[in-house]
């Protein structure tokens, strides 16, 4: 949605540049096209200026090359009682295949390859979209295997990245990206989002791959050495499910009027 606002803002800048270029080239603003770093008269590539020259002229004339745009997302509806409605104005689809090697004597999991295919609408900059997916796989695999946040009495136990472990370059799997393009009516030039979708389905794919390799489900993340080998976490600080952390004293937090609270 942000992309739509950016597009509208950029169109303002484009109009300013086209007006300046038209004056410099002796044409009408509607005839000016901006492409590949230059401004030119449509149908006559010979009448062309470097975009930098046009920007310099705009600056000399005191014209700001800034624009603003705002975009309101299409209305959605959601009925909590019936669970029906148009909850989202667009949907993204994706599929990931993770390949892992599990050391069955230590519980160590190595992700060897991830194939990530995403429905991205129009890939305006395919290299940037693929980069988003590579980053998403790194983040999702860290979420699957390493990232763990614990606290004791409300005090975080991981204070820095030496304790809150992320994947290193040495742990990154080979990543094969597939982009399935379409034209989304709600996105800028038909683009959908890819940041979040690229992250979200990595860990489930890895967890399924571990199951496929070992025959045993890991039902909590991260799939640490202990969880994979023993089927349970061995944490000296985490309370058992539903319990209270040590040191929390007798403090109880009222659940308020949430559903099911008694």
């Amino acid at each position: 949605m942000f992309g739509n606002a950016v597009k509208l803002a950029a169109e303002e800048v484009r109009a300013t540049l086209a007006g300046v270029a038209a004056g410099m080239l002796g044409a009408r603003a509607e005839e000016i096209e901006l492409a590949e770093g230059s401004a030119f008269v449509r149908g006559d590539r010979g009448r062309s200026l470097a975009l930098a020259a046009v920007a310099g002229e705009a600056s000399a004339r005191g014209l700001g090359l800034a624009g603003s745009g705002w975009f309101r997302a299409p209305r959605t509806t959601w009925d909590h009682e019936t669970g029906k409605g148009d909850a989202y104005f667009t949907y993204v689809y994706g599929a990931n295949v993770a390949e892992v090697e599990v050391d069955t004597l230590t519980g160590r999991v190595e992700v060897t390859r991830v194939t990530a295919v995403h429905d991205v609408g129009r890939a305006i900059n395919p290299a940037a979209v693929r980069s988003q997916v590579y980053g998403g796989v790194a983040m999702g695999a860290g979420y699957a295997l390493l990232e763990e946040y614990a606290s004791r009495g409300g005090v975080p136990l991981q204070e820095n990245l030496d304790e809150y472990l992320l994947l290193t370059a040495m742990d990154m799997p080979e990543v094969a990206v597939g982009l399935v393009e379409g034209n989304d009516p709600a996105g800028p030039w038909g683009a959908k989002s890819i940041g979040e979708p690229a992250v979200e389905i990595v860990a489930p794919a890895i967890a399924n791959a571990i199951f496929h390799a070992t025959g045993r489900r890991v039902d909590a993340l991260p799939a640490s050495l202990e969880r994979v080998l023993l089927g349970r976490a061995l944490d000296e600080v985490s309370p058992p499910a539903g319990g209270r952390p040590e040191g929390a004293g007798g403090l109880t937090i009222p659940l308020g009027d949430q559903e099911g609270a008694t």
Binding site: E110, L145, L146, D162, L167, T168, A169, L225
Partner: peptide, 12 residues
């Protein structure tokens, strides 16, 4: 050496 990851890893 057994560590939780392949580099920057404290030995388990």
């Amino acid at each position: 050496k057994l560590g939780r990851r392949s580099a920057c890893s404290i030995s388990r």
